[in-house]
Design a protein around this nucleic acid. Structure first.
Lengths: 202, 202
DNA sequence: CTACCATGTCATCAGATGATGACTTATGGC
DNA sequence: GCCATAAGTCATCATCTGATGACATGGTAG
């Protein structure tokens, strides 16, 4: 058997061996797919085909489909210049004040965003939900709980969780246009109002 | 009393041969599942197990999973009476206290439910979204705004909208298991806590 | 009593999906 | 030029999902 000859016929311009380009292609295809059809309905095979790349490379470069989703989300944020909060996106916030301000401004400008959507939507996979959840906990709940505890509040963790959940509700409701005045109010005014209600852990 | 209805005492070990009851059980389980996790992520096997019925009967009685979903949505409107609040489902609530209690209890018992999901998801059809929105406004926001205004609060409508949005966030977060303590806290305890924060429209 | 049909049980199918690891091939340092 | 290693390909696995049809069983009409 002409082992050497057999593959020769087909040897098409096999994908250029360029890890960076492959990663980028996968990322772009993932953003498109996840953004258009959601996580569950976008398969790794589709992403691979759209990227002109073998789906197995997803595992190689990102670890798993869930990790690819997170990478896609993270990549979207790079276009975003949001300098209100920590420059490093993974840094926890300082206090409730900052959390409220950032959440309301961000949702006002960009809608709920992928992370909040992942938290809220029922078709998000458990891994995605968990990743988004963990992120919120670390960046928002934990620092607020610490603040409440320092203030000597009763059940500081629970109160922090309630405060963050409530804040996300307000941000979600505002950006989705649930209620007219809520939608029309300036984020900073709103922040003051929300802080007034949530910031009294006594 | 045992004669004809050997299984009369209670749910007999073996599923009673009762097509109507089986259908109902499947429908109820489907409502619960679809309402809590959405269509895609609720499997027929889960529904069957929750109903204590073989999943194959879904095909027999409803034709398919999709048909079951349609039947569940259609039936949802009928049993939408929440006895904690107004008997008439279209009646507004009395005050913030009642709103908080009902929302938290309900989401604790049945998950977000179709209305809240319709509000939250960006891919719900506009008519559904608008209907859900209008319902929330009339039943919750309006009475709370009236209450705030009677209390002489500043910007009562905006405050009511913020309060309701925050409450929905808490209910959503609790039923979706965002945060551990929030999830574990008894709805009535939580209601007290939330009310404490939201009920001071000074 | 018996036969028949509704009801319920079970095993299994076919398809899809994400993951995995062995295998092949190009690239670049030496 | 050689060859270790990165990059890419492929076959396949394990699992899950909805669906289906053969079979068992109970109730009841006659």
């Amino acid at each position: 058997m002409d082992a050497t000859a057999a593959p020769s016929t087909a040897t098409p311009p096999r994908r250029a061996r360029n890890a960076g380009a492959t990663r980028e292609a996968l990322l772009a295809a993932a953003q498109e797919g996840f953004g258009r059809k959601g996580y569950e309905r976008t398969t790794t095979r589709e992403i691979g085909e759209a990227a002109g790349v073998d789906p197995a490379l997803i595992a190689r470069y990102f670890g798993s489909k869930a990790d690819l989703y997170l990478a896609a989300v993270a990549a979207e944020r790079l276009d975003d210049d949001e300098r209100v909060g920590p420059v490093d996106d993974s840094q926890p916030f300082a206090d409730l004040d900052q959390v409220v301000e950032v959440v309301l401004r961000r949702t006002a400008r960009r809608g709920p965003g992928p992370i909040l959507q992942a938290l809220v939507r029922d078709d998000a996979s458990p891994e995605i939900r968990e990743a988004a959840r963990a992120r919120i906990v670390r960046r928002m709940v934990d620092p607020v709980a610490a603040q409440f505890e320092a203030d000597g509040a009763d059940r500081p963790v629970l109160r922090a969780q309630v405060a963050v959940a409530a804040l996300l509700g307000v941000g979600l409701g505002r950006s989705l246009g649930w209620f007219d005045e809520l939608h029309a109010t300036d984020p900073d005014d709103l922040a003051a109002l929300v802080l007034e209600a949530l910031g009294r852990p006594d």
